[in-house]
């Protein structure tokens, strides 16, 4: 009984400690984010990693999402003779929802996991300790550039995704399914508003922040060993994806 209580008590304390560590990490990261100095070189490196190297996968998923949306919407709208609205559907879905969410999920899978793995490895091989010993703040040196990269690059990727998604939808709708191209474009342009796209970008920025922070946190506090790094990576991807989807709901509820 005493053993159980002890075990349970320690469990509770550990959970609370974990929450506190989360909050401290976030607070420290945000503080470092908004106060100079900023490490430009590291930031650009990370932007290149998170942004530029994700272009191909984002273009691929965006295009196919647009295409499949067009296909599905066509199937539904044909029943009402409203094929012309396929463009609207693809445009709105991409701009408001699928562009930001799919982009950030892909970036999570590609870059979020890599962030967690990289920082996890640095933790395990004492590179983070080495930074501290050399009086370099690892939060500023490692975390802030990655968060900035997520914050800045995911919206850019989202624009790309929106665009290729609409192109993919156009291709399927007009070239394969034979919807009149003028009608398709007109309906897309008419019902999709700039505010839809911009709100989508705000979402994307939030998701970028989430995936970077989660990746950094999980990597930063990775437990020892190569196994620990693997575990941290997996957890980072799962946690970031879940948080993105949950926050997506609330962001949507607030903004639209």
């Amino acid at each position: 009984m005493v053993a159980f209580l002890e075990w349970f008590g320690r469990l509770v304390v550990e959970r609370i400690e974990e929450v506190g560590r989360n909050a401290l990490f976030l607070a420290e990261a945000v503080r470092a984010l908004v106060t100079p100095p900023l490490r430009w070189r590291q930031t650009f490196r990370q932007m290149e990693f998170v942004g530029v190297r994700s272009v191909s996968v984002v273009v691929l998923t965006g295009t196919f999402t647009g295409m499949v949306l067009a296909l599905q919407a066509y199937y539904g709208f044909r029943k009402f003779g409203a094929e012309g609205l396929v463009g609207t559907t693809v445009g709105l879905s991409m701009a408001r929802e699928l562009g930001p969410v799919l982009t950030s999920l892909m970036v999570t899978a590609r870059a979020g996991s890599a962030i967690a793995a990289e920082l996890g490895t640095m933790r395990v091989t004492e590179q983070i300790d080495a930074l501290e010993v050399m009086a370099v703040d690892p939060i500023r040196y490692l975390v802030v550039p990655r968060i900035l990269a997520g914050l800045a690059m995911v919206p850019v990727l989202c624009v790309v995704s929106d665009f290729v998604g609409v192109l993919g939808g156009y291709f399927v709708g007009v070239k394969l399914l034979g919807i009149n191209s003028g009608v398709y474009v007109a309906n897309t342009v008419k019902y999709v508003e700039l505010a839809d796209v911009l709100n989508g970008l705000v979402k994307a920025a939030c998701f970028g922040f989430i995936l970077a922070v989660v990746g950094c946190y999980k990597g930063f506090y990775a437990p020892g060993g190569a196994q620990g790094v693997g575990k941290a990576t997996t957890e980072a991807v799962v946690l970031a994806s879940v948080l993105i989807l949950i926050s997506d709901y609330f962001l949507t509820a607030i903004m639209f």
Binding site: T121, M122, T125, E126, Q127, D129, A130, V133
Partner: peptide
């Protein structure tokens, strides 16, 4: 400080 595995930045 010299770390066990060197702790060089990869």
């Amino acid at each position: 400080m010299l770390f066990q595995e060197g702790a060089l930045f990869d």
